[in-house]
Design a protein around this nucleic acid. Sequence first.
DNA 1: CTAAATTTTTAGTTTATCTAAAATATTTTT
DNA 2: AAAAATATTTTAGATAAACTAAAAATTTAG
Lengths: 221, 221
Amino acid sequence: MEVSVSQENYLKAILKLERAEGIASNQAIAQNLESTPAAVTGMLRKLCDEGLVEYEAYQGAKLTQVGEQHALSTVRKHRLWEVFLVDKLSYRWDAVHDLAEELEHIGDEIFVDRLAAFLGHPLFDPHGDPIPDALGNIRERKDVVFSSEALAGMKFSVCGVSDSSDEFLRHLNRLGIELGSIYHAVERFDFDGSMEWTNDDGERVLVSSGVAEKILIQIHE
Amino acid sequence: MEVSVSQENYLKAILKLERAEGIASNQAIAQNLESTPAAVTGMLRKLCDEGLVEYEAYQGAKLTQVGEQHALSTVRKHRLWEVFLVDKLSYRWDAVHDLAEELEHIGDEIFVDRLAAFLGHPLFDPHGDPIPDALGNIRERKDVVFSSEALAGMKFSVCGVSDSSDEFLRHLNRLGIELGSIYHAVERFDFDGSMEWTNDDGERVLVSSGVAEKILIQIHE
DNA sequence: CTAAATTTTTAGTTTATCTAAAATATTTTT
DNA sequence: AAAAATATTTTAGATAAACTAAAAATTTAG
Ligand SMILES: [Mn+2]
Ligand SMILES: [Mn+2]
Ligand SMILES: [Mn+2]
Ligand SMILES: [Mn+2]
């Protein structure tokens, strides 16, 4: 019952799609993994044979109990390694994804658990994504909305992003926006939906609607 | 110029053999990697094409400058990860090899260098093997001999092992012998070459000649 | 019910590595 | 220097894990 690197990446993609849309369609999986529907069909059959996904032809895929645990364990590893890279090796949040994508496939549960203990059992990764615990439980955050929903006058803190691509994160770096940053929404410009924010140091930042829609915030008071 | 996991394992084996015997014979490489001479011939040709080893048919293999650097970098990663596992994740020295064998193939020079910095640029791994620095320099230890050479009355500290197999290390665990342990040689029994040692707490240990021949020590005064 | 979209099947292809047995070269022994 | 023993290479093919393009089948939407 060895699960290959490729298979683990499939499981992660299916987990993500299942959480987002209820079921993982062939096409969506292909898109996620930059592959083709034909390749996905082949892999789904294999994963089904191995008891990791439920799959009937033309009906899309769902993870089995075992498959979901495996996927969650891989996500857990991925996010813990991202924490390690940022907290211990001083990587920036836009430089950790590819490395974590490799590290997530190494070692067993004992290894992950020791890593988690060493890091102090962190609850979130450097992008604000929740880290499943050893049993696969994910604490979904409450009271979290996209910053595009903030109204003028509100005070909020940045607690996540819905796009962890290096390009987007580097754009945020340029704007000075990072996890934990606290801002006030000053104004929304109806013309293009962009917003002006200020922080406690009085620094202003102009956030386009496209960017605001990808930043998760928690509203204060 | 991507070097595969398998290729990196070949380079490491060749490095080891070259240091030990001057040249890496086909057969010795096969033995090291639990493969066959025919498979080795094929891989040596590929590595030669890629400029990583010098190889002429029937003449055995030597690493090129580039190949040696790559091999040293892999060894460096392996040993640094072993230090990480023991120092940070509380693994025992007999449980780190297989994991390091996988981790050593991940990431680039920047990653290794940051890991080394995080660990405080350790000079030796948990088995007493020297860790190459970022440039590939290995500080070979001086005044190190096998414990079988210790004469009655001598005081010494354990600084390495020539066999890092889990079985041997677990045997040392049972005897209570670990890196840094300090002993006095009490007596050698001519009958079978076994030795009796004591530590400062007055605890005695009987070491067979086979074991003594695999333990590296530094003699005090 | 059609037409469009999605998925599966078919029939290979690719890549990387390994194997057994035969042929060849090298080394050792006589 | 032969012969014998040992080591290495060649040959020819196996294996495994994935992926692809195009055709066929199925599902879904209008
Ligand atoms: Mn991955
Ligand atoms: Mn992340
Ligand atoms: Mn390895
Ligand atoms: Mn070691």
